[in-house]
Nucleic acid binder design. Structure first.
Length: 471
RNA sequence: GUCCCCUUCGUCUAGAGGCCUAGGACACCACCCUCUCACGGUGAGAACACGGGUUCGACUCCCGUAGGGGACGCCA
């Protein structure tokens, strides 16, 4: 199957998680079929479109690993809808010439009054076609008209959606939408259709908030005699409480997930599983996703976003990642936590500590929090719990054990553990009774990775230094 | 208000008329492992929105009700 998909965000903000999901699905569908995936920025709204927003969206796509095929297009890495405005206007004029569209001179105020009246009467709010059949001679002087599509008022329109199935709407429900604004710029409705057609888009995959637009857009395809692409509408992503996703629910922008230490693999896997399934499979690496993806397995109902599940998926991908790669990703987070650059030796230490850190972390932020103590300089400030562990008796024991450590040639974790175990057994106490004070001395906390291994990584000199500082 | 879509454990979902004593994952609880915290392992609890049909048989098909979402702009 010949496949061309596109992601068409409007550059009026960041790349939202819902947009990322749409982009992911478009990308997966194209990759699955060996087709093309295009990026088109819908920037016809000049007042709200910003270059910063375009950058943010592109950054987000790159971070997620969703590469598109229209790079280096006229000095840009994406299609700009605004660039095609001339073409859009030509199409609109062609439709007027062919009697498929007409000029409407109704002012915005007039239309507002019309809608208000309809609403008051409990009538459906739509353009009443007041200029649909009026002769050109009725045109008022000096009023720039908009171009409206002459939509069929009888019959019905059926769309076979690759996700939602067959959906039919009565044409009487559709009104004559604006194609070209009074200032000659195209509306979204016209621009998407023309661009999708011109770009050879075969599959329009987007959020289902566009479902009802589809019937209107089909009218434009029909008026122009163009092939209608296959549509696939994806269900909405809702906040945890079932209402529309908003700031109060948590991170919305893809960039925020990045800053919070999420891995793109986890975000993609989570987004994929949110409304698409492959039996009982939960962990779906990118390669498998491309192999398995299809539109038929996309669910039809809106899904609630579950930050906890995303986190557990992120934890999984952290555990799977090779230590060196993970350390590299974690460095900026650790440096931010520490407020200073990490020396090469410390980066090395971070990588060596990774096997201990990985199973304990859900995000890169967690890794930064848990690993900060390795790089700590000077004495720790013990919290109440730590102070409770550091009793005079514990101090005496540590002092004795430190003396034994001095003489160790093999300062490995297992050798240390042996010494501590032997000591504990001789004193008739549990290992924890001596291991916990060591943990507090070395990490400044009652919680840390396995403490003998920590000592091993810190080295004999640093370990003894920290014990001395703690006593 | 009009039109469109949706409805299985708390959440994401499996399920295409008998395979369902409704499966998996996250979360939660218990136990095991254990130097702390995790990881891991084992186990428990937890759902077919409601009401009518159709059928020998409905989570699965049809209708209705309720609830949720979306659209109704010279925004996209």
């Amino acid at each position: 199957m010949h496949v061309v998909t596109r992601f068409a965000p409007s550059p009026t903000g960041s790349l939202h998680i819902g947009g990322a999901r749409t982009a992911l699905f478009c990308w997966l569908f194209a990759k699955h079929h060996g087709g093309k995936f295009l990026l088109r920025v819908e920037d016809t709204d000049r007042a709200r479109s910003t270059p910063e927003s375009i950058e943010t969206i592109i950054d987000g796509m790159k971070w997620l690993g969703l590469d598109w095929d229209n790079k280096d297009y006229e000095g840009r890495d994406y299609y700009s809808q605004f660039d095609m405005r001339g073409r859009h206007a030509d199409v609109a004029r062609q439709m007027v010439a062919e009697g498929k569209a007409y000029y409407c001179y109704a002012s915005p105020q007039e239309l507002e009054a019309m809608r208000a009246e309809q609403k008051a009467k409990g009538l459906p709010q739509r353009y009443d076609g007041r200029w649909r059949d009026r002769p050109a001679s009725d045109a008022p002087e000096g009023v720039p008209p908009v171009v409206r599509l002459k939509t069929p008022q009888t019959g019905e329109t059926t769309v076979t959606d690759a996700v939602m199935g067959e959906i039919t709407v009565q044409n009487s429900q559709l009104d004559d939408m604006v194609l070209l604004r009074a200032d000659g710029t195209p509306t979204y409705m016209l621009a998407v259709v023309v661009d999708d057609h011109d770009m050879g888009v075969t599959h329009v995959i987007r959020g289902d908030d566009h479902m009802t637009n589809t019937f209107r857009q089909v009218q434009i395809y029909n008026a122009m005699g163009w092939d209608v692409p296959t549509f696939g509408h994806l269900p909405m992503i809702l906040g945890p409480d079932g209402s529309k996703m908003s700031k109060r629910h948590g991170a919305q922008a893809v960039g925020e997930y990045r800053e919070q230490g999420y891995l793109p693999e986890a975000v993609c896997n989570y987004l994929l599983r949110l409304c698409w399934t492959h039996g009982d499979d939960e962990i779906i690496p990118q390669k498998k996703a491309i192999e398995w993806f299809d539109l038929g397995s996309v669910g039809r109902s809106a899904a609630r976003f579950d930050f906890v599940k995303l986190k557990s998926l992120n934890a999984h991908y952290i555990r799977e990642m090779p230590d060196n790669e993970l350390a590299k990703l974690a460095v900026p987070f650790v440096e931010k936590k520490l407020g200073k650059k990490l020396a090469p030796a410390n980066v090395d230490l971070l990588e060596k500590a990774m096997p201990d850190l990985k199973p304990r972390a859900s995000t890169l932020l967690d890794i930064a929090d848990m690993s900060a103590f390795y790089f700590h300089e000077g004495a720790f400030d013990f919290d109440a719990k730590a102070q409770k562990i550091m009793t005079p008796e514990a101090g005496d024991a540590l002092k004795e054990l430190a003396a034994r450590m001095e003489g160790m040639d093999d300062f490995s974790g297992s050798a240390l553990e042996e010494i501590f175990r032997a000591y504990a057994e001789a004193k008739g106490v549990k290992l924890g009774a001596v291991a916990q004070p060591l943990r507090v001395a070395l990490s400044g906390s009652t919680v840390s990775p396995p403490i003998f291994h920590v000592a091993d990584l810190l080295g004999k000199t640093e370990t003894l230094k920290r014990i001395a500082a703690a006593l």
